[in-house]
């Protein structure tokens, strides 16, 4: 299990897409390639933009299919962050 704490890198308002992309490329994808499961920990993060979440997970769903969501757990998300994650994961599953 790979535990990725996001607050240290993104602060309390997760908005920087460049950092989201870095986390995806340098931490999430290598872990998935090794067959590991991942915890994305949002502890101490008050809010996250749709753009940030999109940059973090959309390409994973494109690359590995919707099943990649079985390998990722989202921890300590407040109501807003849960909704943003749901929106992104839902529209990615609605795509052609």
């Amino acid at each position: 299990m790979n535990h990725i704490k996001l607050f240290e890198q993104v602060g309390s308002f997760a908005e920087n897409k460049d950092i989201a992309r870095e986390i995806r490329l340098r931490k999430i994808i290598p872990a998935l390639e090794k067959g590991e499961e991942i915890i994305l920990d949002f502890e101490n993060i008050n809010s996250a933009t749709q753009s940030f979440i999109h940059a973090l997970i959309s390409d994973l769903m494109r690359k590995y299919g919707n099943e990649v969501l079985d390998k990722i757990s989202f921890k300590s998300c407040n109501e807003t962050i849960q909704k943003v994650i749901n929106i992104v994961s839902n529209y990615m599953q609605e795509r052609e």
């Binding site: 749709q50 999109h54 529209y91 609605e94 795509r95």
Partner: peptide, 19 residues
């Protein structure tokens, strides 16, 4: 869902056309 970066539904790795 409309972004200048692609015509594909769901956008690219960076843009979804939602902002």
């Amino acid at each position: 869902g409309i972004t200048g970066t692609t015509k594909k539904e769901g956008g690219t790795e960076f843009n979804a056309g939602a902002g």
